[in-house]
Design a protein around this nucleic acid. Structure first.
Lengths: 163, 163
DNA sequence: TAAAATTAGATTGCGCGCAATATGATTTTG
DNA sequence: CAAAATCATATTGCGCGCAATCTAATTTTA
């Protein structure tokens, strides 16, 4: 109860440590939202959301995957994917069908419309590239750092030279 | 209708361009989720969600702000903040009160519990630092790059040397 | 082979995040 | 001063994201 100053720091909590942590987690949080907002007007004309677009991108890489395989790639479970895929199917981008050889599985395949969307994606990509305003090198570096961060957070592997 | 190969690339769409764009937006997307998942078990004991924790952090920086001021800092509107703050108040972390001098505004202030939570946050910060496994320099650099990206996406200022 | 365990998806409930709208309070205009 | 415009916040609706639960299909095991 000895703290009366609310700004910058309080007692034994170093402001720098607080700030860095705050900045990192908030920076990722804010960047994700900013990207989402940038994509929104580009995807709206097609009736797609950003997560739906990401699912289409993974299908462009490899079509005909199961829900589980998609979830493994995207880090999402069926609670998120089932309704999302249902909407993508209703919009005509994909087709879902139970696997004949294992009726538990659902195979997700692109429709002609889903494949055609890949061509539209070219202009979206260019718009995003312009919006980031960053060089290819900067974006590549940033991507790599984020991937490293994500991998470490997911695997729990430490390096113990952090703050 | 001339594309029959679904893998890697199709016709005139260069695979590299697709891949970089896909990697960047997905990297931010995945990192945000990974951070969220890392925070979750640390915040669960306090009954806090990650966005609620972020709101508390901004209040630790400067207490007694209006909903609008919080929204400006966090990039969130009242549609998100109103119910979130309602839950934070129900949980006893903050107090909301109409501004006497301008009844349109609602002032958000920390309670003793909300201020005390800042001390608990120290161990959370250390856990997150360990989980990232990155050096302070790496995290600082990553944060700066993300802030640049976010600023450019939000302001729409281009640099026109992107892909 | 029958029972138990595992697996893949779907469903439900809750908390964001955001657009659209609604409600009061304040300020601006006429 | 009264009507109109603006402003701050709240509410509603929809789509994620995730935990928990449910169902049906397959595999394991006894």
């Amino acid at each position: 109860m000895s703290d009366k100053r609310d700004e910058a720091e309080t007692n034994d909590i170093p402001a720098g440590l607080l700030a860095l942590d705050q900045q990192l987690c908030f920076a990722v949080y804010a960047a994700a939202h900013a990207l989402n907002r940038t994509y929104k007007p580009l995807l709206d004309p097609y009736g797609l959301t950003y997560p739906q677009y990401i699912v289409l991108m993974t299908l462009w890489e490899e079509d005909g995957r199961t829900v589980k395989a998609l979830g493994a790639t995207l880090g999402l479970d069926s609670g998120t994917l089932s309704p999302l895929l249902k909407r993508l199917e209703a919009a005509g981008f994909i087709h879902r069908a139970r696997d004949r050889s294992d009726e538990r599985q659902v195979l997700v395949t692109l429709t002609d419309k889903g494949r055609a969307m890949r061509h539209e994606a070219l202009s979206i990509r260019m718009e995003i590239g312009k919006a980031t305003g960053c060089s290819v090198e900067a974006l590549t570096a940033l991507t790599a750092e984020l991937q490293t961060l994500t991998r470490r957070l997911e695997t729990g592997e430490a390096h113990d030279d952090a703050a």
